[in-house]
Write a protein that binds this DNA or RNA. Structure first.
Lengths: 335, 335
DNA sequence: CGGAGCCGTGAGAGCGCTCTTTCCCACATT
DNA sequence: AATGTGGGAAAGAGCGCTCTCACGGCTCCG
């Protein structure tokens, strides 16, 4: 930087001003400095800058999942699930124009303390926290740290933190309505894990809407948001309730598996059994027949999380805000 | 840090020694310092440390893909493809024990300069570069930067950089052998994009092995490593060559699509037509019948990339090294 | 014509750490 | 008793930047 200053015949302070785009620099001098920068090939040292500005220009994407028996499959599951992929894509897209980078940190409860330590050290300016399961203590811990944070769903315990969510119950209702509209009279559902709020909300939303319409004792089987889990759940459900004619599956991945099971068992979709998924991920298009599903705009939601986080970073005292997205029904062939 | 030093009745230097685990500190003093750290809740400032050590303890995972018409789908495609997911999982797993974090940076040629700028600024200690397409200039640019780097495949132009790859031709040969063993006499292939070395190598390896065994003019159609692409390619292939009885598809994702097309067209798999994939990704288990495929240990390869990179970071002058993994055949139901 | 006000620049004090150098003291050696 | 030896702690100089504050020179107004 001294070299640049000397080459341009100005002081270090002026070089700094030019680099940071301060408006109060004379156009001629600005140009001279820029030429000097180009000639010397000068690149600012980010560590030195961070030291004084207290900014790192990066944020963490912390993906908190329940413990897994083995670490390998844990990582693999996370990074292979299209849901997390869409989150990453959405967040990256929103952050990039602001030149903010993303540090991806998967975690389960066994290494919460490492994550917390990382965050405390000031590596990042804020956190996007993807946490779904009920008992997860990480949102609270992060909140207590005082670092800017946005969570991916309404926290289960009431903490004053910003979050972005989709109206889960409305989504479930859209699915239920679609099934009824098609003429289904024996609806059932494969839910997500019931220790996850979104799993619970979708189940509850589905059932309570149907109850209003006079359908009680709607069968439900708990799934685990994987294809294999969906397939197994569908087999179980049809074994116990062969009369079913409509099925709401709480994720597209599970729906893909369920569709397979249903067809293996000789049911035609949608004629014998109509199936509605949830997510509208790429998996919906991998199904045959193409999956009718409830669209959750995951990329937009992640982008919104990023925007809210950046706002928090820019103005520290800012009050938490929550944003709820509306799901929509995407009608294809399966229902 | 001054507070800690005062609380422990020592100097800042000693606190630093304790934090960095210097062996030459008296046990009693060490303990006092640690107590002081705990009491004050002191956390070292990483920016200040980086400023003097010239280390950031993070590395970039740069995923370089060809230009896409629209940015949105570009990000989505990358983060949804299980191949990149496996890479991320493998790299994360290897880096975590060393407390090194991963900054994920997707890029196409339109923003190479941004990536280069980011790297030059010293945000990261090194780069894991995932670059597949032939004309990609990024590997060379990164190499010229002089920053420690490891590339995911043999660079197309000969630059002195470390890389990790799988023996693509051997993999293709394993597939060919399997088809012949099953008794196929009319083999064909759906290749990857031919401007990607791995695509080319698999095609070439397949054909040249078959040529040795007397099979010439083996039909091939170019695919694009997506499910939809695989499906379309299979339809084209079977329309032109209805007599086929064996098919090597250069990625599991494409194989999944191809399988669908083949079965839609009334062929039974594997009886009428045997299908072998490539990758052994989770997609292989989503196929029906379960996909016989060539296993590429992507997670291990990514982990190895990370190890090599850390070695380069630790000892700067180190000569480039390349590691080639052996693929294996995983026999399931489709061939 | 003198002083107030403003714009643009320079000087210099840190930001919080590491690491080399220096120093002290206890103990061994002659 | 004087000198040598070495382990362990302290002192202090940076690392490369930003940002406040002071100041010089200009315009403008009374």
């Amino acid at each position: 930087m001294d070299q640049v200053a000397e080459a341009a015949g100005v002081s270090r302070a002026t070089v700094s001003r030019v680099i940071n785009g301060a408006p109060s620099v004379d156009a001629k001098i600005r140009e001279m400095v820029q030429r000097a920068i180009a000639e010397t090939g000068y690149v600012p040292n980010v560590a030195a800058r961070s030291l004084v500005t207290r900014r790192s220009n990066s944020v963490a994407l912390v993906i908190s999942e329940p413990d897994r028996p083995d670490n390998h499959s844990f990582l693999n599951r996370i990074f292979t699930d299209p849901y997390f992929g869409r989150i990453t894509a959405g967040a990256t897209g929103a952050l990039r124009p602001h030149d903010i980078h993303l540090v991806v940190i998967p975690t389960d409860s066994t290494d919460h303390h490492q994550v917390i330590r990382y965050l405390r050290q000031g590596h990042v300016d804020g956190v996007l926290l993807i946490s779904s399961h009920e008992q997860d203590t990480l949102p609270r811990q992060v909140h207590e740290l005082g670092i800017p944070a946005v969570v991916s769903a309404r926290p289960t315990s009431p903490i004053a933190v910003s979050f972005v969510d989709v109206d889960q119950r409305l989504g479930a209702r859209l699915a239920a309505e679609r099934l009824l509209t098609r003429g289904c009279r024996r609806p059932a559902t494969i839910s997500g894990p019931l220790d996850i709020p979104s799993g619970l909300d979708r189940l509850d939303g589905f059932r309570s809407f149907l109850a209003q319409r006079g359908f009680t004792d709607v069968p439900a089987v708990e799934g685990d948001f994987t294809r294999a889990g969906g397939e197994a759940a569908a087999r179980r459900l049809l074994a116990e309730h062969p009369e079913l004619d409509g099925l709401f599956v709480a994720s597209d991945l599970m729906a893909e598996g369920a569709l397979r099971a249903v067809q293996d068992l000789g049911r035609r979709v949608p004629d014998d059994l109509a199936v509605v998924g949830f997510d509208d991920s790429s998996a919906a298009l991998d199904c045959r027949p193409l999956l009718t599903t409830v669209r959750q705009p995951v990329e937009e939601m992640a982008a919104e999380m990023a925007e809210v986080l950046m706002a928090h970073i820019a103005t520290p005292g800012r009050l938490p805000r929550s944003v709820t997205f509306q799901p929509t029904l995407v009608v294809r062939d399966s229902a």
